[in-house]
Design a binder for these strands. Structure first.
Lengths: 210, 210
DNA sequence: TAATTGTCCGACCGATCGGTCGTGTTTCCG
DNA sequence: CGGAAACACGACCGATCGGTCGGACAATTA
């Protein structure tokens, strides 16, 4: 066992606290709308102290994206992977996503939905990283769908990209409508994917009733 | 015939030009990220001149939302209403929406998708107006679906709110994915709604093939 | 103990933000 | 012709923006 450097440990702790707060605040005011002074105030640290950890706002934004990705992996992907491979895991991913929104883990709903729209027309490293994360996310849905096909739980002729597109669309609409109109959106998001999966699922017993 | 007041006419002309530009720029940098100085520069007018027409940035933002709604009505809703009532009109609305995105009428894709995510966690008059416009839009989809049911072109037991939710989700995913990943998203958005409508349509001949 | 390293701070910088004010110009009306 | 009205301008305001700099403080290493 190696003794940890107290200085480095403190720095890592501070960085984590800053990034957690940055992720949350970014869902409210945007990743670019995020002000370093406001972020520092919210954490009771000095603004210049932030520059000891990130050399510019853009570096902090990139680190914030990475932290949001981690959070997303912990809270959505990991719980879904706990379910058995196949259509149940695919369904679990969608439900875990909706639960993440409904539980208000982040005040603004979804970090990536907000940030991706914000940067959809703003070229640069931030946009590039957001695109990469989104590709990863869409690829995950496709992979789970593909696994379900290989497991024989989805019809062999199902278009997994098409299916992934529709699941992603249902989830995206959920975070937007739940924030604008209220939680009534969640049942619609559930039924949308549930009906779609039932239509291509070989064993209806693998999916919930309602 | 009454002669128009040249002063008022000039004011109206500049207001229209400013709002058109504001709508376009807002899709790139956000409705809040929009800077009055940048907007004025882009139009070769003075910043203070803007305050002669709107007393504050928020007033201009509200006017910009109204202008974006008009644009949306002209370019998407009106063309759809040219189609015969029923499932064809509902389908035409979805296609007109996708065409609006694909034709890059606005540089950032969709004014409302961007603005609604931007303000989803920011209470105030701007958010309220965005919510109202979105309710209107979702209500339009539902009404067209309801008309299709009454026309006997959709099965009588179809849940129009559910259907509207899924159509909106497919369109929302289209604008986001087309901006992030490229125009490949449009065929997915088309097929998603086409398959869904085919599943509840009484006469398949009313819908296109592909 | 002395030098070094990592963390964090307060003071400060130029640029830009939304917004105000006084003025000039054009157009309409009496 | 002269006043009123609407539009538009440049100069200017305090606040905030991202970012820099020199130094204080604590923990490590030699």
């Amino acid at each position: 066992m190696t003794t940890v450097d107290g200085r480095l440990a403190r720095g890592a702790r501070t960085r984590a606290a800053v990034l957690d707060r940055a992720v949350a605040m970014a869902t409210e005011v945007g990743l670019d709308g995020l002000s370093l002074a406001q972020l520092a105030d919210a954490l009771a640290v000095s603004k210049s102290g932030l520059f000891a950890h990130w050399r510019s706002k853009e570096e902090l934004q990139l680190a914030t994206i990475d932290r949001a990705r981690e959070l997303c992996t912990e809270q959505i992907v990991a719980p879904a992977l706990a379910h058995p491979r196949g259509v149940r895991r695919l369904w679990a991913l969608h439900e875990a996503r909706l639960a993440f929104y409904a539980d208000a883990v982040l005040p603004g709903g979804c970090f990536f939905a907000s940030a991706e729209f914000e940067y959809s027309a703003r070229p640069g490293p931030v946009r590039d990283r957001l695109v990469a994360v989104f590709r990863e996310w869409l690829g995950l849905i496709e992979r789970l769908a593909e696994e379900a096909v290989r497991a024989g739980e989805l019809l062999p002729d199902v278009d997994v990209r098409q299916l992934a597109y529709e699941i992603e669309g249902a989830g995206l609409a959920a975070v937007m409508q739940s924030r604008l109109l209220g939680p009534d959106a969640y049942p619609y998001a559930r039924r949308a994917v549930l009906h779609r999966l039932r239509g291509v699922c070989t064993d209806p017993a693998l999916l919930p009733e309602a």
